[in-house]
Amino acid sequence: MSEEQLVRKIKDGTVLDHVEQGRALQVLEALSIDGKDGNIVTVAMNVPSKKIGKKDIIKIGNRFLKSEETNRIALISSRATVNLIRNYQVIEKRKIETPNTFVDVFKCPNPTCISNSNEPIRPIIDVLRKSPPLLRCRYCSRLLSPNEVI
């Protein structure tokens, strides 16, 4: 079955293509997309891909995600591509870039970090090195690999 049959084209919105296989739900969570705004969100997982074997695809109707938003998924799916669609036409194509800081995207895995307490605090993870990624919790200073936070 082709991709076209699986996921309908959208008129306006954002398409995240080439999302790492099986990571679509994590991507939605990182983007804080929960469907509560009433817009159509289509998720396809394990879609055959010539380039990467299998991939996930996410189509978000009527929302045009900015770079600062889509870059939040850099550690979850760095190969994903972002297509902004207007009237069925691609008006912008972007790659994901790793930001210098992730605010409120990942929890620090250190259970004794203050960011895991009942304090009014948003977890902040700084990116010390982009390739290969090396992270550090802004609060407890623990060095982290992407696997520890995803």
């Binding site: 250190n110 970090c113 203050i114 307490s117 304090e119 605090i121 919790c137 609060y139 407890c140 200073s141």
Partner: peptide
């Protein structure tokens, strides 16, 4: 002084 790591940094905010 606080038992949780990063408490002082949070306090500065």
């Amino acid at each position: 002084r606080h038992p949780m790591e990063g408490a002082s940094r949070f306090a500065t905010e």
